Amino acid sequence: MPELPDLEIFSRNLHRRLSGRQLKEITVRNSKKLNVPVTELKETLESQKLTSVSRTGKELYFGFENGAVLGLHLMLKGELHLFTDGDSRKHTIVELVFKDGTHFSLTDFQGMARATLNPEADHTPDALSEAINQEFFKRIFASRKATVKNVLLDQHIIRGIGNAYADEILWEAGISPFSAANKIPEAKLRDLAKAVRHVLENAVKQISKADPTIISGELRDFLRIHTTKKTHSPSGVPILIDKTGARKTYYTQEQEIFN
């Protein structure tokens, strides 16, 4: 599943490739999760110029000159495609055709990816916003007995952090993922806030360096803890794996537990 750093790079590359192009046609091939009638989507967006592509949380926002926004959420298995051959890709959710012949599509063989016209404003802070600091975590964690990893993954508390990067962030902060959020001392909350920004910003740099034009998929070779390719952390401590349902947590005994 693409996470915040992947989507940040996707948005930058799609903005560079598509902004300024005029939309000729939008086709919805799976409308189960569309929030408006297809006719309304077409009337709102067709013939409009695309002015921006940006990321917010785990969604991509396509902004048009009339002020309308098309939000795309890839969910677990969504993929993005740019092409000019005119043949639709398999399992297409939505396809945009621009007047210069460029095609862009969102596909998902599970059918879970969704398109939304003019998504409602979400005031939950993005993981890379300035609001994510020590005071934020102090306020948010104060009344929460849930494990710190579960809190980090809650998109209603902080947007954009997924499973892999939660493990990376907590390892860098030296906090066990099984710690109770309300038991973590203030000094560690400062470390956590720093780790959120450093891990995510570094991942953006690493992905951009490895594949400057990427618009789909995920790159994980640079991860230090959440990886099957390594058995020990950078400091030489064995990486442990705990499985809860379909989710795996990667951690080491270097991380302090607070309960």
Rank of each mutant, 00 (worst) to 15 (best):
K90A: 09
I140W: 01
R190Y: 10
E46D: 06
E130N: 09
R114M: 14
K248H: 02
L223G: 04
N118D: 15
Y250W: 11
G174K: 06
N259K: 15
S47K: 15
L189H: 03
R190E: 14
F258D: 02
S235D: 14
S129N: 02
S216K: 09
I140S: 02
E25T: 15
K42G: 03
K188Y: 14
H156R: 11
Y165Q: 03
L4S: 01
A210L: 15
D87L: 10
V97K: 15
R224P: 01
S216W: 03
G236C: 11
G63L: 05
L60K: 09
A193Q: 05
T39I: 09
Y250N: 00
A193E: 09
N163F: 11
V36N: 06
I175D: 05
H123A: 13
F141A: 06
L152C: 05
G63S: 14
Q110I: 00
P238F: 10
A142F: 07
G67L: 12
Q110T: 04
F64S: 05
Q48T: 07
T27S: 14
I132W: 05
T213W: 05
I214D: 01
E79V: 06
L170Q: 07
E59C: 04
T231P: 00
N150E: 12
K145V: 11
L60F: 01
D122K: 10
G236P: 12
S216T: 15
T92C: 15
F141I: 01
E46Y: 05
G111W: 10
A164I: 11
P238R: 13
T227Q: 08
G217A: 08
H226V: 00
L76E: 01
L23D: 04
Q22A: 13
I157F: 00
P177A: 08
Q48P: 06
V38C: 02
R247F: 01
T213N: 14
V94C: 13
A246M: 08
Y251K: 00
D211K: 12
E8K: 09
K145W: 03
R55N: 03
D87H: 07
D191Q: 15
K230N: 04
R89L: 03
A210C: 00
Q206A: 10
N133E: 04
A180D: 07
F109C: 09
T51W: 01
E172Q: 14
R55F: 00
I169P: 08
E135Q: 12
K248W: 00
P238V: 11
Q253A: 12
L219V: 10
G245S: 03
L4V: 09
A203D: 11
L106Q: 04
K33N: 15
L45S: 12
R12Q: 05
T116Q: 10
K229S: 04
T92Q: 03
T107N: 09
E218K: 11
K99H: 06
D191L: 15
R89I: 01
G71N: 04
N133H: 07
D6N: 07
Y251Q: 02
L192E: 08
P119H: 07
Q22Y: 04
T92K: 00
K138Y: 04
H123F: 13
T147N: 13
F64P: 04
E59I: 07
I257K: 15
D6L: 03
T231E: 13
N150R: 14
F141M: 05
K77R: 10
P234A: 08
I93S: 10
H73P: 00
L50I: 10
K90F: 00
N150G: 13
R29F: 10
P119D: 07
P125M: 06
K209R: 15
G236N: 12
K49L: 05
E135S: 14
